[in-house]
């Protein structure tokens, strides 16, 4: 079934120049494999469309049950140059949580 990513993960985003990053964190450790499977760099790039002009890189942190997504050329110049209302990419984490992901019903069941 399809669910929004927000059901199983939370996120925070920020900037370094024209690059934004999003830390995506599974609410429970057992959801981490779903993140790894569903939240791929390609799907994230597609989700943001022309908002992200450069590449998307993905890093895995299994110890934290989290992914770090680095979005290049995502802030129209970034910092003080950008004319965007969200020049520092503060809302991009929330935007990612809208993404629809595919999960099996058994994956969301409560564990023992």
């Amino acid at each position: 079934m399809k669910i929004p990513l927000a059901r199983i993960a939370h996120a925070r985003s920020g900037d370094k120049g024209d690059t934004a990053n999003i830390g995506v964190i599974a609410y429970q450790e057992r959801y981490y494999p779903i993140l790894v499977r569903e939240v791929t760099a390609e799907r994230v790039k597609r989700h943001f469309g022309d908002l992200v002009q450069g590449e998307v890189e993905r890093y895995e942190l299994p110890n934290l049950g989290a992914l770090n997504l680095v979005l290049r050329r995502a802030l129209r110049g970034g910092g003080t140059v950008s004319l965007r209302v969200d020049a520092q990419g503060k809302t991009l984490g929330a935007a990612l949580l809208r993404m629809e992901i595919e999960v099996g019903e058994h994956e969301l069941e409560e564990g023992p």
């Binding site: 925070r12 920020g14 830390g23 770090n68």
Partner: peptide, 9 residues
């Protein structure tokens, strides 16, 4: 965790 991942590469 949210802060650990904040503004890192």
């Amino acid at each position: 965790k949210e802060q650990l991942l904040y503004e890192i590469g």
